[in-house]
Computed example of a mutant assay.
Amino acid sequence: MTDSTFTFRVDDDLKTAFAETAKAQDRTAAQLLRVLMREAVEESRAKREYDEWFDAEIDAALKEADDPNTEWVPHEVVKEDMARQRAELLARIEAEKK
Protein backbone atom coordinates (compact mmCIF):
# COMPACT_ATOMS: atom_id res chain seq x y z
CA MET A 1 0.00 0.00 0.00
CA THR A 2 1.41 3.39 -0.92
CA ASP A 3 1.35 6.29 1.51
CA SER A 4 -0.13 9.70 0.82
CA THR A 5 0.30 13.01 2.55
CA PHE A 6 -2.76 14.55 4.14
CA THR A 7 -2.44 18.30 4.73
CA PHE A 8 -4.98 20.51 6.48
CA ARG A 9 -5.18 23.56 8.70
CA VAL A 10 -5.99 23.35 12.38
CA ASP A 11 -6.18 25.82 15.25
CA ASP A 12 -2.87 26.08 17.18
CA ASP A 13 -4.52 25.29 20.52
CA LEU A 14 -6.17 22.19 19.09
CA LYS A 15 -2.89 21.08 17.51
CA THR A 16 -1.06 21.47 20.81
CA ALA A 17 -3.77 19.67 22.80
CA PHE A 18 -3.91 16.87 20.20
CA ALA A 19 -0.12 16.43 20.28
CA GLU A 20 -0.27 16.21 24.09
CA THR A 21 -3.09 13.66 23.87
CA ALA A 22 -1.11 11.57 21.40
CA LYS A 23 2.00 11.76 23.59
CA ALA A 24 -0.04 10.65 26.62
CA GLN A 25 -0.99 7.56 24.57
CA ASP A 26 2.68 7.02 23.62
CA ARG A 27 1.93 7.81 19.98
CA THR A 28 2.77 10.51 17.52
CA ALA A 29 0.03 12.82 16.33
CA ALA A 30 0.23 11.15 12.90
CA GLN A 31 -0.21 7.69 14.42
CA LEU A 32 -3.22 8.83 16.41
CA LEU A 33 -4.73 10.53 13.37
CA ARG A 34 -4.40 7.28 11.40
CA VAL A 35 -6.17 5.40 14.21
CA LEU A 36 -8.95 7.98 14.29
CA MET A 37 -9.31 7.89 10.50
CA ARG A 38 -9.52 4.08 10.48
CA GLU A 39 -12.13 4.15 13.24
CA ALA A 40 -14.19 6.76 11.38
CA VAL A 41 -14.07 4.70 8.18
CA GLU A 42 -15.00 1.48 10.02
CA GLU A 43 -17.83 3.19 11.91
CA SER A 44 -19.20 4.60 8.65
CA ARG A 45 -18.92 1.20 6.95
CA ALA A 46 -20.64 -0.55 9.86
CA LYS A 47 -23.47 2.01 9.86
CA ARG A 48 -23.94 1.63 6.11
CA GLU A 49 -23.99 -2.18 6.39
CA TYR A 50 -26.52 -2.00 9.25
CA ASP A 51 -28.72 0.40 7.28
CA GLU A 52 -28.63 -1.93 4.27
CA TRP A 53 -29.52 -4.92 6.48
CA PHE A 54 -32.32 -2.97 8.17
CA ASP A 55 -33.75 -1.81 4.85
CA ALA A 56 -33.72 -5.41 3.60
CA GLU A 57 -35.54 -6.55 6.75
CA ILE A 58 -38.21 -3.89 6.23
CA ASP A 59 -38.60 -4.88 2.57
CA ALA A 60 -38.97 -8.55 3.57
CA ALA A 61 -41.54 -7.67 6.25
CA LEU A 62 -43.56 -5.57 3.83
CA LYS A 63 -43.45 -8.35 1.26
CA GLU A 64 -44.63 -10.84 3.89
CA ALA A 65 -47.39 -8.46 5.02
CA ASP A 66 -48.62 -8.14 1.43
CA ASP A 67 -48.55 -11.91 0.86
CA PRO A 68 -52.13 -13.23 0.85
CA ASN A 69 -50.88 -16.51 2.37
CA THR A 70 -49.54 -14.78 5.48
CA GLU A 71 -51.29 -15.99 8.63
CA TRP A 72 -52.29 -13.10 10.86
CA VAL A 73 -52.67 -13.61 14.61
CA PRO A 74 -54.92 -11.13 16.42
CA HIS A 75 -53.30 -9.02 19.11
CA GLU A 76 -55.57 -10.37 21.84
CA VAL A 77 -54.55 -13.95 21.00
CA VAL A 78 -50.87 -13.02 21.24
CA LYS A 79 -51.44 -11.24 24.57
CA GLU A 80 -53.27 -14.27 25.98
CA ASP A 81 -50.53 -16.64 24.81
CA MET A 82 -47.79 -14.47 26.32
CA ALA A 83 -49.68 -14.21 29.60
CA ARG A 84 -50.01 -18.00 29.68
CA GLN A 85 -46.28 -18.46 28.97
CA ARG A 86 -45.38 -15.91 31.65
CA ALA A 87 -47.59 -17.65 34.21
CA GLU A 88 -45.97 -21.00 33.38
CA LEU A 89 -42.47 -19.54 33.79
CA LEU A 90 -43.35 -17.88 37.08
CA ALA A 91 -44.85 -21.16 38.34
CA ARG A 92 -41.64 -23.00 37.36
CA ILE A 93 -39.52 -20.42 39.16
CA GLU A 94 -41.65 -20.73 42.29
CA ALA A 95 -41.43 -24.54 42.11
CA GLU A 96 -37.63 -24.39 41.81
CA LYS A 97 -37.38 -22.16 44.89
CA LYS A 98 -38.99 -24.90 47.00
Rank of each mutant, 00 (worst) to 15 (best):
K15P: 02
T21F: 09
K47M: 09
T28A: 01
A65T: 04
Q25L: 09
E39R: 09
A65L: 04
H75L: 07
V77C: 00
A83N: 12
T28E: 00
Q85S: 07
F54K: 07
D12E: 14
W72C: 01
D51N: 15
E76C: 07
A83C: 15
E57G: 05
D3C: 03
E64K: 11
T16S: 07
V73Y: 04
I93W: 07
R84S: 02
Y50C: 01
A30C: 02
T7F: 11
E20F: 02
A29Q: 03
W53V: 13
V77A: 10
A95E: 08
R45N: 10
D26M: 12
R34D: 08
K98M: 07
A30K: 08
T5D: 09
F54G: 00
D55A: 12
R9V: 03
D66E: 08
A56S: 10
L33D: 03
E20M: 06
A60W: 06
E64I: 08
A30E: 07
R9Y: 15
F8Q: 04
E94P: 00
R34V: 01
S4G: 05
E96D: 13
A17D: 14
D59T: 12
A87S: 06
V78H: 09
A40G: 11
D67A: 05
N69C: 09
L14D: 14
A56N: 13
R48E: 07
M82Q: 07
R27F: 14
A40D: 13
L89P: 00
R34F: 03
E42V: 11
S4V: 02
P68L: 00
R38N: 14
H75S: 05
R84Y: 11
R34H: 12
K23W: 07
E96Y: 14
K47L: 14
E43V: 12
E64C: 06
E71F: 08
L33S: 03
E42H: 10
L36V: 04
A60M: 06
A29C: 05
D26V: 04
Q85Y: 06
D26I: 05
D51P: 06
N69E: 08
D59P: 01
I58N: 10
E80M: 13
R45W: 10
K15R: 15
K47S: 11
W72E: 01
E43Y: 13
A56K: 13
V35Q: 15
E57D: 03
A22D: 03
R38P: 01
D3M: 07
K23S: 10
R27V: 04
L89R: 11
R84Q: 05
I93S: 00
M82H: 08
M37H: 10
T16K: 13
K63C: 04
A65C: 05
M37K: 11
A87L: 14
T16W: 15
K79L: 15
R38K: 10
